[in-house]
Design a protein around this nucleic acid. Structure first.
Lengths: 343, 343
DNA sequence: GTTAGCACTCGTATCATTTGAGTGCTAATA
DNA sequence: TATTAGCACTCAAATGATACGAGTGCTAAC
């Protein structure tokens, strides 16, 4: 369907445009020597490629720029995964310090990723669906206040302080904590509230004198919204890209990127492996002129997190894809080592 | 030194410029009716005010805009603190939900503050100098990994996971945790490391068989850098201001605002009460054309945090100052109630 | 002391013109 | 038949002239 030469032309145009962000003209291409045909020949192919929807013009006598369909074809057929010894070296460098803390390493990865690409990186922590409660503690801080701490088997810690009207009865508190731990340890985080309601409320009512007044607080602790953690790196790096030379674009980008929920939803639905969404392929309005590359990483058996890069549709797909797939592999490995003895 | 009329002119010009962001001309002022003098008279006063350095021109035949000296005078002499029933109502609304968590309330305050003003708000958590250790826990997650949790008397929780090469000996761990709690409870956070070195290392060496190999990990837990928490609200709200219509300005603003350390340093040195730094009065290069209004709030006896708003020098000083002072008062009160029983 | 009047300044908006990189099409060439 | 050269045409962006308007400073009159 596409001749050899047309493929070549398409490829060169996209490469060129990715590099320069300027429309690519036939004459300039021919002169640059990366293709041994005359401007006229290239022009013919360009016209064909435009008819087929792979290229576009910004105005009637401009050079060509890739269409989204063009990028899609490019990503699907024209890029060979880069051998990425260099990437791996960089990534190993992040990892080698020894994982002191999962969150730290993720944060750092996000920053490096963005630094390396000048796009904005987003990392989603693992979904909590399979995470289980390891331990629950409630420490009294004073007569009326206490802090509840919730630890999962992945080492994730959540805490919440609260204040109660009456005095805290220390022996009651101990009883409550014991019962809670007894019944809730090993229960998946997302089922905590359900189990609490079904199995524990009744139990506590029998054992604790004035349980009614405390139920509300306990419930708040247990059912705390457990959003997936979102790490974003280099929000301002993306401003280096020429497509963000427009103040309005910056505004809408930032008001999107600051809404973590939206971002989490954006990424949550991604399936395994590398995913590429170009421009309007994205369902979220605010990034319909950006591209999103996602990769997943494994944590334990069933848990999964997502790494992503958000940049202009004119993105260095080759580099980004290889970088993300390296990183996701390394991350999975490091986390495997870290958690393998947990089960 | 300044005539009544000159004061009036200065005041009106600044008010007008704050509102519109456009240079103010004599004719327009006179016509608007807010001052009962002719354009010529106003012009004379304007010229005098310019000679004295309170006003500036953007070019030889433009209207006047306030100079930094002008803003300074305005802030120091021309604004009467707004009676802020409305502010207080808004703020009370934030507070009344009941403080479930200090951090949550601070975060929320920051956002509301920014929403109300369209500037960027910054809140510094309390300095930890006077905060004391309430409890230290180390929970094993698996044979090689554990998570350490550190709770302060203010209900602040820090945690850190780590992995050790050898197996974790549970009875040793218990001993260690007991010794640590025994010796470190009530010790100010900033002195933790010192006390650990002086009093505990020796002790542990005697009690624990293979203490040498674990010392490193314990140390890491205890001496974790305890930076002051920074909450920033409405990073993108400030883009609404017309002075941010320039992409380069946005770039430099964002690369500053994303460096939390720099911001923490910027605010840490502020003394009690309300502080106003206008333009070049700021020592940090990146905000030399912005104004920073700070207020402090109290937490307990000696601890102090800072609330700030960062906006263009053309800032609604009146509104911002009253808003900040109301909020700092409310925050201090709320925190007082919250922590009063702690000691 | 205040104001009216007037010449002057300068940024901004508008419009015509030029320039240059690009295109499509046709005819010549290999 | 596939490629290339040539040419007329298009359009964005840069340049420059012009008009406009909001502003100023200064002087003289009130």
């Amino acid at each position: 369907m596409l001749t050899e030469r047309q493929l070549l032309v398409l490829q060169i145009i996209i490469d060129d445009f990715i590099e320069t962000a300027h429309p690519v003209g036939s004459r300039a291409l021919s002169k640059k020597g990366s293709i041994p045909y005359s401007a006229a020949t290239i022009r013919n192919d360009m016209a064909d490629l435009e008819d087929m929807g792979f290229l576009e013009k910004t105005h009637s006598s401009s050079g060509r720029i890739p269409s989204e369909k063009g990028y899609r074809y490019y990503v699907d057929h024209l890029i060979a995964p880069l051998s990425s010894e260099q990437n791996i070296r960089i990534i190993r460098n992040i990892m080698k310090e020894g994982i002191y803390e999962f969150e730290q390493i993720v944060q750092m990865s996000a920053e490096v990723l963005s630094e390396l690409t000048n796009y904005t990186s987003i990392i989603l922590g693992p979904e909590l669906s399979e995470t289980k409660l390891k331990q629950l503690e409630i420490l009294p801080l004073s007569t009326h206040t206490a802090v509840a701490i919730l630890v999962t088997d992945t080492g994730h810690v959540e805490h919440r302080s609260f204040t109660v009207p009456g005095k805290i009865d220390l022996s009651d508190l101990e009883k409550v904590v014991n019962i809670l731990n007894d019944r809730l340890k090993g229960v998946p985080i997302i089922r905590l509230e359900e189990v609490f309601q079904k199995e524990i409320v009744g139990l506590l009512k029998r054992y604790i004198d004035d349980f009614g007044s405390s139920q509300h607080y306990l419930q708040a602790i247990i059912s705390q919204s457990n959003p997936v953690k979102v790490y974003i790196g280099g929000k301002s790096n993306i401003l280096m890209q020429p497509e963000f030379n427009d103040v309005d674009k910056i505004r809408s980008f930032y008001s999107m990127i600051e809404n973590e929920n939206e971002i989490a939803n954006l990424l949550k639905s991604k399936k395994d492996g590398i995913g590429v969404s170009i421009g309007n392929e994205n369902k979220v309005e605010a990034i319909k002129d950006l591209s999103l590359i996602t990769a997943t990483y494994q944590l334990g058996k069933d848990q999964m997190g997502t790494i992503a890069l958000l940049g202009p549709t004119r993105m260095e797909y080759k580099k980004v894809i290889s970088l993300l797939s390296s990183l996701s592999k390394e991350l999975s490995e490091a986390l495997y080592k870290w958690y393998k003895t947990s089960e």
